[in-house]
Design a protein around this nucleic acid. Structure first.
Lengths: 363, 363
DNA sequence: GGCGACTCTGAGAACGTTTGCATCATCCTA
DNA sequence: TAGGATGATGCAAACGTTCTCAGAGTCGCC
C-alpha cells in the first residue's frame, strides 16, 4: 500500500477483493453488481477516501464537464458580475468553470484560448478583444464550441450574446434630449470593441432623430479607463460654451469623470447632467445617485450558457445549427444626476459649493 | 483521417512518418531527434493544428500545472482583487487557475473542494468559511497541498496568509480616539470568521489602551452584508446620545451604512466620523472620500502563491516544513470622512443640508 | 433436459500522453 | 579492427478511468 499517492480505483478494487471493472460499475451505479459486492466496494472506497480522478475520466469519456470563461478584466465589476452569473448557471448544470482574464491583450488572449483548449474544456464563453481573429478557425479545428459575449465578432460567425448597446445608448441620449439638453458630450471607450461602436451609434441616432447636428468638439473617444475619463472631462470643461450634459459610455471611465467634475467644482445635476452606460453598485449611493443604463447580466449569462450547452450536447439542432445572435434587455434607471439644463454660463467654484449644489437634483 | 476529432500525437506521427515517441520528443524538445525529422514533425503538427491534450499529459506526469482558488464571493471587489493578483502570480509561474465561489455556504464549499481535488489540481488556495473542517484531513489524504488566506483555521494547521486585521483595526480605532471621539460605534461582520473576530479584538484593544470601557449599545455584530449595514446604522442613530464616530469593519457592509446615514441626513464628518476596514475604489470619489484601512492584496497573493509553490515543488524544505503563518501589511489611508467630534446633540435634517456639511472635513 | 433470459464478474482495450529501455547506425579513438 | 561513445529511433508500459465483450452461474419454462 503506497502511502504517497491518492487512492485509485485499483486500490479500492484490491481492498474489496474484486476487479477494477466491477468497482467502477459499483461506484458509478451502472450495470449489474451484486448487493454484497457493492457494499464491499463502497466501504473500501470510503476507508481509502477514494476520489475519482476526473482527468482520467475525461480522457476516457472525451468530455470534461468544464467550460472556460475568458474576460478582459477581473477588476471591473461589470465582468465579475457576469462571471458570477455564468458560474452559477454552469454549476447548476454540473459544469466547472475555468476563468481567466486577458487584460485586453491580444497575445494573452491567444495564449489563454490555446491553454483552455489544451485543458480540453468542453466549450468556451468568451469576450473577444478584437473583431477579427484567427482563433476562430483554430477553435473550429479543435472542435471546441464557443460563444462570444458582450462584444461581437465580424459577421457573428459563432453564437453571440450582447447587450442592447445601441438601443440603450439611444435611450440615454434621448433622456437628456427630452430634458432640453442640446450640447450633450459623449465620452466613449475604445472603438475597436463592437460594444463601444454600437453605443456610439446609438448616440448618433438619437441626435439625428432630434434633428441635431453633431458637434465634434463634444465627442471624446478614447479608452475604457478612468484616466481617460479624467482627460476627456478636463477637455470638455475648457470648451466655451461648455456642454450641459455628459453621457459616459462605460462605467470604467466614470471614476475619472466624477473625480474631475468634483475637483472643478461643477455641480451635478445643476450645472451638468451626467448619465452612464452600465450600472454598478456605487452609482446608487453616490452623491448625487447616478442615472444609468443597467444591463441584464443574468439574462446574458443564461442565454450564453444555454447556447453553449446545446452546442456541447448537440441537443435541439445543436451541432450544426447556424450561429445565433442575441441581444439582452437594458433597463433605464433614473436617479438624480440628470436634470434640465440651466441657463447661463458654467461657473467654476470650489468644492464646498459643489456639494451644496448637488442636492438640487430632480427627484 | 477522422474529421471529428482533434488531432492527436498519433496523427502527427503518422503524417510525419515517424513514431509517436519521436514526435513527442520533437515537440517537447527533450532527448535526441535528428534535425530533418524534427522539421517534418513540426510541419505536420502545424498543418494538423496539433494541440497537446493537457489532460492526458497531466495523467501521465501526475502534475496538472493548475491550482484551484476558492473564494466566498465574486461580487465583492475585495475578493476579485485578490483573485486578480493570484491569477497573475500563477500565470507568471506557468500555472492555470480554477476559480470557484462558495457564497459562504459550507455545503457548496465542501463540494467545490472535492471537485477541485477531483480535477487533480496541484494545490489549493482557499478562503475557509469555517475554522473547523474535516476537509483538512480530506486534503491530507488526497495529498493536495493547500494554503488558507484571509481567514484562519483553528490552530493554523496549514500554511496561512491573512491581513493584519487586529493591528489595522486598532489603528483605525486609535485614529478616531486621537481625534477626540469617545463614543465610537462598531459595525462588524460575522464573528464566525477569524478576520472579523480579529478586527473586533483590535477595536477592543484600542479602547482598553485608551482607558475607555466598552459600551455594548455601540456594538453591532451581524453579517457581512449591506443590509446589515442598514439595520445597524438605523439602530445606532436611534441611540441617545448617539455615537460620534462609526467604525465599519468590512467594505461589504458600507453601502448600507452610507445610504442610511444619507437618508437620515447625517453629515459626514461633521456630525459623524466614518472609517472602514478594507479600501475599495469608490471610497476615493465618494462624498466625502472615505478614510480607510487598505490591505495589501498583491502582497497577500504573492505570499500565498509562494508558499503553495514550495509545497508543490517540494523546494526549500517544501513538503514537510511545518505550517507557516503570515500576516501582510495594512496601510492607513486618511481621507475626509473623519474629523474631531463636534459638541452638541446630533440633529436629523433633510438631504440638502447633509451635503453642504460634508465639505467641512479635515484635509 | 435443453434453451433462452437474466445476473454477475473479470479481462483487456482504449483515451493521449511521457518515458525507460532496447536497438541500430555512425563515428571516434586506441 | 575492435570497441566504446554518441545520436537517432521505436516498442511498450504506465497514468486512472470507462466500457465492450465474453464467460459463468442461476433460474424458469417448454
Amino acid at each position: 500500500m503506497e502511502t504517497h499517492r491518492r487512492a485509485s480505483l485499483k486500490d479500492v478494487a484490491a481492498l474489496a477483493e474484486t476487479s477494477i471493472a466491477t468497482a467502477s460499475r459499483a461506484l458509478s451505479g451502472t450495470g449489474y453488481v451484486a448487493e454484497a459486492t457493492r457494499q464491499r466496494i463502497l466501504d473500501a472506497a470510503r476507508t481509502l477516501n477514494y476520489q475519482p480522478n476526473l482527468r482520467a475520466r475525461g480522457l476516457r469519456q472525451r468530455v470534461s464537464h468544464s467550460v472556460g470563461l475568458i474576460i478582459p478584466n477581473l477588476l471591473n465589476a461589470y465582468y465579475t458580475a457576469l462571471a458570477d452569473s455564468i458560474s452559477q448557471q454552469l454549476a447548476a448544470r454540473g459544469y466547472h468553470l475555468l476563468l481567466s482574464s486577458t487584460r485586453d491583450d491580444a497575445a494573452t488572449e491567444q495564449e489563454t484560448v490555446v491553454d483552455m483548449v489544451g485543458q480540453a474544456v468542453d466549450g468556451l464563453i468568451w469576450v473577444p478583444s478584437t473583431a477579427e481573429t484567427d482563433l476562430l478557425t483554430y477553435l473550429a479545428d479543435q472542435h471546441t464550441p464557443a460563444v462570444a459575449i458582450v462584444r461581437r465578432l465580424a459577421n457573428d460567425p459563432i453564437d453571440t450574446v450582447v447587450f442592447e448597446d445601441r438601443a440603450g445608448s439611444r435611450a440615454a441620449t434621448q433622456h437628456l434630449l427630452s430634458l432640453g439638453h442640446q450640447r450633450i458630450a459623449y465620452i466613449g471607450g475604445d472603438m475597436m470593441y463592437s460594444s463601444n461602436r454600437d453605443r456610439w451609434q446609438g448616440y448618433l441616432e438619437a441626435l439625428r432623430q432630434a434633428g441635431l447636428e453633431l458637434d465634434e468638439s463634444l465627442v471624446k473617444l478614447g479608452t475604457n479607463r478612468g484616466t481617460w475619463g479624467t482627460m476627456a472631462t478636463n477637455d470638455l470643461l475648457r470648451l466655451d460654451p461648455a456642454p450641459t450634459a455628459v453621457f459616459v459610455a462605460s462605467n470604467a471611465i466614470m471614476p475619472g469623470v466624477i473625480r474631475t467634475l468634483r475637483q472643478a467644482g461643477v455641480s451635478l445635476p445643476g450645472e451638468m447632467s451626467l448619465i452612464c452606460f452600465d450600472d454598478v453598485d456605487w452609482f446608487s449611493f453616490s452623491v448625487p445617485p447616478i442615472t444609468a443604463i443597467s444591463t441584464a447580466y443574468t439574462a446574458l449569462a443564461e442565454a450564453a450558457v444555454d447556447l453553449l450547452m446545446t452546442r456541447i450536447t448537440g441537443t435541439s439542432g445543436g451541432a450544426d445549427r447556424p450561429p445565433v445572435f442575441m441581444e439582452v434587455n437594458f433597463e433605464f434607471v433614473l436617479r438624480r444626476s440628470t436634470a434640465a439644463p440651466r441657463t447661463g454660463p458654467l461657473q467654476f467654484r470650489d468644492l464646498h459649493l459643489v456639494e451644496a449644489a448637488s442636492a438640487e437634483g430632480v427627484s
